[in-house]
Design a protein around this nucleic acid. Structure first.
Lengths: 138, 138
DNA sequence: CTTCTTGCAAAGAGTTTGCAAACAA
DNA sequence: TTGTTTGCAAACTCTTTGCAAGAAG
């Protein structure tokens, strides 16, 4: 199976029609292990795709989110960051360099009795602070 | 000790000069056990305080955040929500009614080795889903 | 007097939307 | 054809900022 086909299949399985733009954006998100902003996606993709509109990126990312392909990280009401959903993990946000690092953690043993009657769709853990690199550069 | 004095003292202890507006906003935040938006604070306070500017609320809340009095919950890049900092707790966000409920949880036993070299200032846990009430109303 | 705070209006940042053209089924 | 997606520009929402007037010490 070719690379391109598999991307296309990921989309189809989620009931997203696989347009070129959507495939390329998915490819970008999978290849990029940061947590890019729309701006970064836009800049990063324009080298290879000349006519791509930010509106399309916004729309595509929203579609992806609705279908459960990505997670939107809204950290401080500035730019959103986007994260391909893989396994359970927490996010560490460096308040200095704004970089986000994933860290492994399982949510299984965090049981909250108080929420037994609610339907829980998503669990997010954010730690905020200063990363090692920025601590050293002070 | 009078009520007003104690509010004023809370601010002074955090090195925030206790202006009328700041005291009133603090009072509102303490009395309100929701997680209000700026709009809600504005509406809620105007009944008792006629000349109050939104800019002042924004500025005050930012000051409060910087001094560690409140926490800003940026959930989806729409309006921010503001939370008086008390003890450790998680937040459950109902995606239907948008209400936020606190739930008790301690972060102590969640140790992440990977982050040992980082300075962690804040830990946030968000669960998102549908609350009991909204599940019933379907 | 000097400094900090308030309130208004304007500016700014990020995101969404309306619509015509392009594309796909 | 018929419906969906794209791309541009304009609109929109929330937040911040500049500045003059006011309050506090």
């Amino acid at each position: 199976m070719k690379h391109f086909d598999s991307l296309s299949e990921i989309l189809s399985k989620k009931n997203i029609k696989p347009s070129i733009q959507r495939i390329k954006i998915l490819e970008y998100m999978l290849g990029c292990n940061a947590h890019p902003t729309v701006e970064q996606i836009y800049d990063g993709m324009r080298t290879r795709m000349h006519s791509l509109s930010k509106a399309t990126i916004y729309n595509t990312l929203r579609t992806f989110e609705e279908k459960g392909l990505i997670r939107v990280l809204s950290l401080d009401n500035t730019e959103n960051r986007y994260d391909i959903i893989t396994s359970d993990h927490g996010h560490f946000v460096c308040q200095t360099c704004k970089r986000i690092t994933d860290f492994e953690m399982s949510f299984d043993h965090i049981h909250v009795e108080q929420l037994d009657d609610c339907k829980i769709n998503q669990k997010d853990v954010f730690y905020k602070g200063v990363c090692q690199k920025c601590l050293q550069n002070k």
